[in-house]
Design a protein around this nucleic acid. Sequence first.
DNA 1: CGTGCAAACTAACTTAAATCAAGTTATGTT
DNA 2: AACATAACTTGATTTAAGTTAGTTTGCACG
Lengths: 245, 245
Amino acid sequence: MISEIDPHGLIAKSLSAYSRIQVFDSEALGRLKARTKTFESGSYVFREGLSSSDYVFVISGYLFRQKQTLDGYRQIVSLIIPGDMINPESRFVNSLDYNVVCAEKSSIIYVQRSEFEELIDSHPSIRLALDLRTIAESRQLREWLLNIGGRSARTRVAHFLNEFAARTRLRGLSDGLRFSLPMSQEQMGDSVGITPVHVNRSIRSLVESGLINHANRKYEIIDLDGFRQAGQFSERFLLVDDLPH
Amino acid sequence: MISEIDPHGLIAKSLSAYSRIQVFDSEALGRLKARTKTFESGSYVFREGLSSSDYVFVISGYLFRQKQTLDGYRQIVSLIIPGDMINPESRFVNSLDYNVVCAEKSSIIYVQRSEFEELIDSHPSIRLALDLRTIAESRQLREWLLNIGGRSARTRVAHFLNEFAARTRLRGLSDGLRFSLPMSQEQMGDSVGITPVHVNRSIRSLVESGLINHANRKYEIIDLDGFRQAGQFSERFLLVDDLPH
DNA sequence: CGTGCAAACTAACTTAAATCAAGTTATGTT
DNA sequence: AACATAACTTGATTTAAGTTAGTTTGCACG
C-alpha cells in the first residue's frame, strides 16, 4: 500500500527539534512516497546484522533498540517514539548492530533510499537535522551509561521515567505529567540494568514517597521537582544547541 | 608553537580505519597547520558545556571522556587513544556533554576550524571517514551499555581489557597481546561501573584462571580465546562496514 | 638513597540487588 | 461467565558487589 505522508506530520516535527525546518522542507517531506506496514507487539522490524535498503520511520507505536549478551541477557539501548527514524545509520552503513522490536502494535513507513537521499541533498536543513539527531543520540547513550553505571536502582528507574515524560512532551505526545508507558516492568528492567522485581519495588518506593501515582501502565507525576531530583534528571541532554552555520 | 602534522601520521591512519584514505588525502592532512600543546596527567582538555573553536587530536597519550552524577560519581564513557579526534561533534554543535581528562601526560594538536572544514569539503573520503567514525562511536557506546547493564563484574573487566587490546592493536599501538594500560584500577572501575576493590578481585580472578598475566599496569594475554570468552568479547563492534558509495 | 605518597592489594564485614517462590490482579478468549 | 495467560506484587533468602580499613608495593623527588 502506497500512501503520502502528512506534510505537516510527525517526521517534520521530529526533525524540527534539531534544525529549523521550513515550510518548503516539510512540504517536500510530505511529498515522499511511502509504503506503510503494521507490526504486532513483540515483532522485529530489524534484526542485528541484516541490511536495510529503505529508510524507515515510526508513525505510531513505541519500539526499542536492543542488544543481547551471549548468555541471553537483553539490554534495551534506546526507545523509539513516533516520528523517529528507526535506522538512521543506514545513511552510511549497511547493517545495524541492534535489533528493533515493537513494544506495542506499531505502524511503520518505508521510504526508498534514493528518494530520501535526493531529499537530503536538496534540503540542507534536513541533512543538518539528521546530523544533529546523531549527536543527540550519542548524548543519550552517554547519559544512559552514566545512569546505569553510577546510580541506584530507584534513581535509575526515576531517571528513566523522567526521560520518557520529557521526550513524549517534547514530541507533543503527552503533557509531560501524565502518560502511559507501553512497556512491561521486565522491559524497563532491561533498559536500566535491574531485575523486574526490583523495578517493581523501585516504582513502589517512588509512589510511597509521594512523587508519582501509578496504576497499570499509567503514570502521573505529582511532584515534578521532587521526581526530577529523585532521578537526578535534567532534560538538557535531550537537546542539542545547533551551531550557527 | 606551530608545527606540521606528519603526513603519514597517526591521524590519517586513524581515519583510514573508516574509509579509504588516499595518498593525496593524507598529504593534505599533513599540510594542516597545528598548534601543539602538552597536558599533564589528570588535567582537563575540555570541560562539559564549554565550547571549542578548534578541532583537536591526540598525538600521544591516553585520555578519557567522562560524565558526573550530581552526587559525585564519575562515569568514564569512552577512551581516547592516539590518533583519535577529541571533539568530533564540534563539527555540528557548540558544546560538549562530557569532560575530557588525560590519563597520562599527553600531547594534543589544535587545528583551526575553518582550515579543517575546508579540508573536509574538498576531500569526500575524509568527510566519510568522520561520519563513519560517529557511527562507530555510537556502536561502542551501545556495547558499553550492554557490558555494564548485563554482565558480571569479572566479565565486564575482561571485556574492557579485550577492547583495549583490540583497539590498540588496530591502531598499531600494541600487538594485541601485551600492552600496558595507562589507568588506575579506580578509573577502570569508573569505566565499567564497579568499585576499585572489585576491579582488583576481578583481575586477580582472571589471572588465577590462567587467562592473563598482570603486573603493575602491564597485561599479557596468555589464552586469547579463553580471555575473549571470559569477556564475551567480539571485535565486530569496533569496526564499521563501509557502504559502497 | 631514604622519604613520602599514591596506587595496589587483601581481608572482614555490610548491603543492595538478585533469586526463589507464592500470591494477586489484569487482559484476552471461547 | 469461566478459563487461561501474562504481568504485577510481595515476602523470604541468597549472593554479588560495596564498604571500610589495614598493609604492601612502586615510584617521584629532595
